[in-house]
Simulated scan of single mutants.
Amino acid sequence: MRLTLSYTLFTLAAGTLSLAVIYVGMKYVPNYPLTSSNPRYRSDAPSRQQILTTLLVAGGYALALMTAVGLVGGWFIAGRVLRPLKDLTGAARRAADGALGHRVALTGPRDEFTELADAFDEMLDRLQHSFEARQRFAANASHELRTPLAITRTMLQVAAADPDGQDWGRLVTRLQDTNQRGIEITEALLALAELDESPPELTPTDLATATREALATVRAEATAHGIAITATLDPAPTTGNPVLLRQAALNLLQNALRHNHPTGGTVTLTTGPRPSDPSHVRLTVTNTGPSLTPETVATLTEPFLRARGRTAATDPTRRGHGLGLTIVSAVTTAHHGTLHLIPNPDGGLHVTLDLPALTGPRQA
């Protein structure tokens, strides 16, 4: 209605201005009397005042007609213009009711409305993806946390039913392992929650130093599994949180070791400036292992999803909690970097973590 009235008022104002210009022009130009050129001929021509009066009356009727046409035409034009907004409103109401799968999919020429509809559809895509990911996260987290508790309860129930037939040393060891798994999952979930709620404190640091510390932590595990690690750790100055960067490097190395060949595998580790862009530094971790499909790799950063699905490895020394790469992805996002996971043609995974390089005097 507001658009219709605006169209009508604009039409009325334009018509009134046109009538005023014509009226003024006829009143003052020309300025000679309307008489016959022959003085003996008496003309019946109307006077100037009669012409002006007739002009005003005719103009008034014309303006009334233009107003009516403007109201009707403006109503239809406004309805046609605002029709895409009705579709957007309907989609917004469906989304508010929880139906995130609906899309506007506005067709027609490219204009402000189609751009708005496309932006709205893109927002719904992200919301749906985020909502579904959180639903999977909640379901998987409850399952992962319930598993060690259920195992502990079962072992305690068996021990209570037959206390004399138990190997208490073995039972205590199994309980400690199960309890440790629950602690690791809980700590990983807390780390993810902290990254989501508040940004970390960033200071000038060296990605190579954090990676070197993580490498020292996994040396014993690599030796135990017969996996050779080749490291080229060139300086990679950046602005970041040393603790989080060390944790990200540690998770990548543990992932490369635990998802490798049973024995005789390799891991290649490098740090330094990104070859194609010195404004970024790069950490790469490449490992041998089973073949992976691009579809499988695309889900590895989701919580509790492993290369073999949601099933943990049977070997306790190779068992993870399914949050390692999820934490790496969260740390990368908190540092304004990018994480890329690419399956190797011969098996295994190639991971690149790029962060903005440290600029300014401190870099030297």
Rank of each mutant, 00 (worst) to 15 (best):
A191C: 10
A159W: 09
D234F: 04
T205Y: 03
A231N: 07
A159K: 11
A224F: 00
H225K: 12
R246C: 01
L207P: 04
L195Y: 06
T173N: 09
G169R: 13
H225S: 14
D164K: 09
A231W: 08
P163T: 03
P200K: 08
T186R: 12
R212C: 06
T205S: 11
R170A: 15
L195D: 03
Q176R: 14
P163D: 05
A231Y: 07
S198R: 14
P235L: 02
E187Q: 15
N241H: 06
G226W: 00
E201T: 14
R181Q: 12
T173F: 07
W168I: 14
E201A: 13
W168Q: 09
R174S: 15
A222K: 05
G165N: 12
G182S: 13
G165P: 01
T211Y: 02
A220W: 07
A208K: 00
R174C: 03
R246V: 07
Q157H: 13
E184G: 06
T211C: 03
P242T: 02
L192F: 01
G169V: 07
P237S: 09
L207H: 02
L192W: 05
D162M: 06
A228R: 14
D164G: 15
G182R: 08
G182I: 02
V243T: 12
A188N: 15
Q166W: 07
T203E: 15
A210Y: 02
P237I: 11
A236L: 02
T211L: 01
L245W: 01
R174T: 13
R181V: 04
L215D: 07
T232G: 09
T205Q: 08
E194H: 10
T178A: 03
Q166M: 14
A228P: 04
T230F: 11
I185V: 15
D162H: 10
L175E: 06
A216E: 14
H225L: 14
G240I: 00
T230Y: 06
A161Y: 05
P237N: 07
L171S: 07
G165E: 04
L175T: 03
H225P: 07
A159D: 10
D196H: 13
A216Q: 13
T178Y: 00
T205A: 12
A220L: 11
Q176D: 10
A208G: 00
T186V: 12
E184C: 05
Q157D: 15
D177I: 13
R246E: 15
T173W: 05
L245I: 01
G240W: 02
T186G: 09
G240D: 02
A214P: 00
L190P: 02
T232D: 13
P200V: 08
T211P: 02
I185F: 08
D167E: 11
L189N: 11
L244P: 06
D196R: 14
